[in-house]
Computed example of a mutant assay.
Amino acid sequence: MPSPDLIVFSALVFVLAGLVKGVLGFGLPTVVVALLALALPPTQALALLVVPSFATNLAQGAVGGHFVALCRRLWPMGLGIVLGTLVGGRLTAALFGPEAATATRTGLGIALVVYGMSGLLGRPPTLPGRLERLLAGPAGLVSGVMTAACGVFVFPLAPFLQSLGLSRAALSQALGIAFTLATVALAGNLLDGDRLSGRDLLWSVAGLVPALAGMALGMRLRDRMQPAIFSAVFLLGLAGLGLHLALA
């Protein structure tokens, strides 16, 4: 059994991670792994992440009032995410070897920093309807491959969704739907490779309630923000995540 101090620390980490996810729509895995790795082995920190990540993604995708409309609009992206995640891990490992994950994470980090900072300095690009339909599937496919290769869900998914001009609630819900699909497909990969045990899942349940509580608080905070402030916070979050990936 973990010590009482470790239990309290883990709960506070998941509250903070849920708060970040509630505001930005992403970031829970980064916060959890970065902070829990201070007290636990990285593999155990990752194991603790599985259930809270899936549950918060599912809750985020279900809340907002746009579920049916987003599924109808973005189903090619969702299909691409599932296909890319299922085949991406094996494909990148076969082509580039075991160093693929590290190189991919660094490249993604740099790309996110560039995108986030360029958006803060100018206006984020907006896709017309014709390009949206053309790019939805490829954006999902590439995001799925990146998810399988290095466990990062947000690129090019988050920039693509932001370019659609969605409201704060719809953007958060669209990210939740996409992340849920990616999490399920990634869990399938892990189970297929015998890299996820029942003991890991049971230990992971411990972070569920604090993560959901933190996310609910974060979503309240997000809804109180002015659109311009939310856009700036969203872009700063992407740039901060990118910096973490590039330097980790």
Rank of each mutant, 00 (worst) to 15 (best):
M146K: 00
L171N: 06
L164I: 12
L131Q: 13
V152Q: 00
G144D: 02
V142Y: 00
L161A: 08
A136P: 01
A178R: 02
P125R: 06
P156W: 12
R130K: 15
Q162I: 09
A136M: 07
L171R: 05
L121F: 10
A158M: 14
R130M: 14
R130G: 10
G137V: 10
S172P: 01
C150H: 04
L164N: 07
G165Y: 13
T147S: 09
G122D: 10
G122A: 15
F153R: 07
F155T: 09
L135A: 10
V145G: 02
P125Y: 02
R168C: 11
S172R: 11
T183V: 13
G122S: 15
L134R: 13
P128V: 09
S163L: 03
T180W: 00
A170T: 09
T126Q: 14
T183N: 12
T183G: 00
T147H: 02
P128E: 13
G151V: 03
E132D: 14
R133Q: 15
G151E: 09
G137R: 03
L181F: 13
L171P: 01
V142P: 02
A170V: 10
T183E: 12
L141I: 08
G122N: 11
A182Q: 05
A158N: 12
R133W: 13
S143V: 03
A136R: 02
L181Y: 08
L134F: 05
A149K: 03
L171I: 09
R133H: 15
P124K: 03
L161F: 11
R123P: 00
P156F: 08
T126W: 00
S172K: 05
L175M: 15
A182V: 01
A182M: 07
L161K: 05
G165R: 11
A170I: 11
V145H: 04
E132H: 14
F160D: 01
F179N: 02
V145S: 03
A169R: 05
A174P: 03
V154A: 15
A169M: 05
C150N: 07
L186K: 09
V154L: 13
P156M: 12
A185C: 11
A178L: 06
L186H: 06
V142M: 10
E132L: 13
R168P: 14
L175V: 05
V152G: 02
F155Q: 03
L134E: 04
